[in-house]
């Protein structure tokens, strides 16, 4: 069996003493699916049962119908559960004049410290005017930005070399989820650009695909993410906990890497 963390996971032992920060979470319902345990209270209860310290969350409402209301929902969770939620400020790029005021509100009034982009849902190019405003803001605040997609590898490279104080988190790229797709270009960028990291979240977990990516890009460039409460938090954790990797690499991926990128985890 693969190490102490795997043995603890197989017993369902609460993971006290291991820093676990989920870099890709959401909050609230998303009605195309029947969501379960998606309120902040339910999420914290499940985090407590497993031993997850914190999740970085954006509201489904923030991404979809009403970004202000969604950001307020996340801010309320941050207030009611100190230390358990890192807020992803989320904007709708189709409202360009609202981008900077909303980001300033999120960071300066709502205690959010990172940004979430979803260019696919918004059908908006990641190098469009609104996102460029947001990246300028993130660069000034030295913030982490998680994006569902960064367009092409060339575009990510140009953005990451221009905004060197931004930490770029590439969603859904810390694994190989289709043996037909050539991941080497993305993996090369994540490995070589110092401010680019890979997020693990994905519903599909091919056997061996995560370990292969970790060995390609290095454990120090991989961030655990679950997409919870869309996905079951423990299901997603299992990919790391029972992986064919050593425990120090797993601990980097589970929390230590992200603790260096977002405020509040100086331990």
């Amino acid at each position: 069996m693969a190490g102490e963390l795997a043995e603890r996971a197989m017993c369902g032992e609460k993971l006290d003493g291991v820093l676990i920060i989920d870099g890709h979470a959401h909050m609230g319902p998303w009605c195309p699916l029947q969501a379960l345990a998606c309120s902040a209270n339910d999420m914290v209860a499940y985090m407590d049962a497993i031993g997850v310290d914190a999740v970085c969350a954006s509201g489904f409402l923030s991404i979809t119908a009403d970004f202000r209301l969604g950001n307020d929902m996340v801010a309320d969770a941050i207030r009611r559960h100190p230390g358990r939620f890192v807020g992803y400020a989320t904007i709708n790029p189709h409202y360009p004049t609202d981008v900077l005021p909303e980001l300033e509100r999120c960071f300066d009034e709502l205690n959010m410290t990172a940004l979430k982009f979803h260019p696919a849902w918004h059908s908006y190019p990641v190098d469009g005017h609104s996102y460029m405003q947001a990246l300028e803001f993130a660069n000034d605040r030295r913030a982490l930005v998680l994006s569902h997609t960064w367009g092409t590898p060339a575009l990510l490279e140009s953005l990451a070399t221009k905004y060197t104080d931004v930490s770029f988190l590439v969603a859904h790229h810390a694994h190989i989820n289709s043996p037909d797709i050539d991941h080497t270009v993305w993996a090369g960028l994540i490995r070589d650009l110092p401010n680019v990291y890979a997020d693990l979240a994905s519903s599909v977990a091919l056997m061996g695909g995560f370990e292969l990516m970790v060995r390609t890009v290095g454990a120090h460039k991989v961030i655990f993410g679950s997409d919870t409460p869309l996905h079951d938090l423990a299901y997603q954790l299992g990919r790391v906990l029972l992986a064919d990797l050593d425990d120090e690499d797993k601990k980097d991926i589970l929390g230590r890497n992200l603790a260096r990128l977002v405020p509040g985890f100086d331990r």
Partner: peptide, 17 residues
């Protein structure tokens, strides 16, 4: 298996409340 990762469902059962 061998297509999908066995760690995910194992962990999900182990930590199910």
């Amino acid at each position: 298996m061998p297509v999908y990762d066995p760690g995910c469902p194992i962990s999900m059962i182990a930590y199910a409340p």
